[in-house]
């Protein structure tokens, strides 16, 4: 029986393929995309403000409010700026670190360095954010105070390992001989970096940026802890669903980060970054 099944599978590549694909596609294609679609539909509904029950009649009202409200534009742009700043800071900090790890450290040291970078991921996100609150407080070690800058700093810290790891993996795959060859051909350090290392490591960089960008874009907790009086798009979503029980409007607001990420993914898809996460 088993033998016959094996032979059957061996001969029918299409059957093998559909068996392999069925479960992941059912889960992500049907269940997850379905959930997103259901959320999108909800964005066209409204709620009975008193009883909190959904009113299932089509309306553009949520999107009208979203588009006409100047405050939402400001918040969306601010969130975009924060996500971009976090990504840039993480890139600048992570790249040299990942390069040193991948190309300068001995294999044995590499193993320990990866552990060193991974370890903070296990200390709770909230606890780390609070540690920054303590550091930034007026009488704290740094004493820089709270606000948008503090939010960017804290988010950069929280997501740094997510940038280091893909870049490290990308650089590690890059053969040393390639760099030596560039050197032998007379390219100096900077030129080798610009013409050889960067183009080859770019997909890995983009992969890291997907993490830092999306994690920053969806955050609403860090900004509450160190953000002073500022708010981001995640807070608007959270406040509308948590405080006002207005799922339709929250869903409408949530389409903004979704759109931003979809545009971003479409833009980077060709780089092969999606396989480097």
């Amino acid at each position: 029986m088993r033998r016959r099944l094996a032979t059957f599978l061996h001969r029918h590549a299409r059957v093998r393929l559909s068996l392999l694909l069925s479960a992941p596609l059912a889960w992500l294609g049907l269940a997850y995309l379905g959930a997103l679609a259901a959320l999108l539909v909800t964005a066209f509904w409204s709620t009975d403000t008193f009883t909190g029950n959904l009113i299932r009649t089509f309306t553009w009202a949520n999107f009208e409010d979203l588009v006409t409200g100047e405050v939402y534009r400001t918040i969306a742009l601010r969130s975009l700026g924060v996500a971009a700043a976090v990504t840039l800071i993480d890139l600048v900090v992570a790249f040299p670190m990942a390069f040193a790890m991948a190309k300068l450290a001995s294999p044995r040291a590499q193993r320990w360095l990866v552990i060193a970078v991974l370890t903070p991921l296990w200390a709770s996100y909230l606890v780390k954010a609070y540690a920054w609150r303590v550091l930034l407080s007026a009488d704290g070690l740094l004493g820089w105070g709270y606000g948008l800058g503090a939010t960017i700093l804290t988010l950069s810290y929280l997501w740094l390992p997510y940038m280091i790891l893909p870049i490290y993996a990308g650089l590690e795959r890059l053969p040393n001989s390639l760099l030596d060859a560039a050197g032998d051909l007379g390219a100096r350090g900077w030129r080798t970096f610009r013409t050889v290392v960067w183009p080859l490591a770019f997909p890995a960089v983009v992969a890291g940026s997907i993490f830092t960008f999306s994690l920053s874009l969806g955050d609403y907790i860090t900004v509450k802890i160190v953000g002073g009086r500022s708010q981001l798009i995640g807070n608007v979503v959270y406040d509308n669903i948590g405080a006002a029980n207005n799922l339709p409007f929250a869903a409408a607001v949530a389409t903004v980060p979704v759109l931003i990420m979809l545009v971003y993914l479409a833009a980077v898809r060709r780089t092969g970054a999606l396989e480097n996460l």
Partner: peptide
């Protein structure tokens, strides 16, 4: 993973 957690969460 690319979409913000709050979107996945509420969806």
């Amino acid at each position: 993973i690319a979409l913000p957690g709050i979107v996945t969460g509420i969806a």
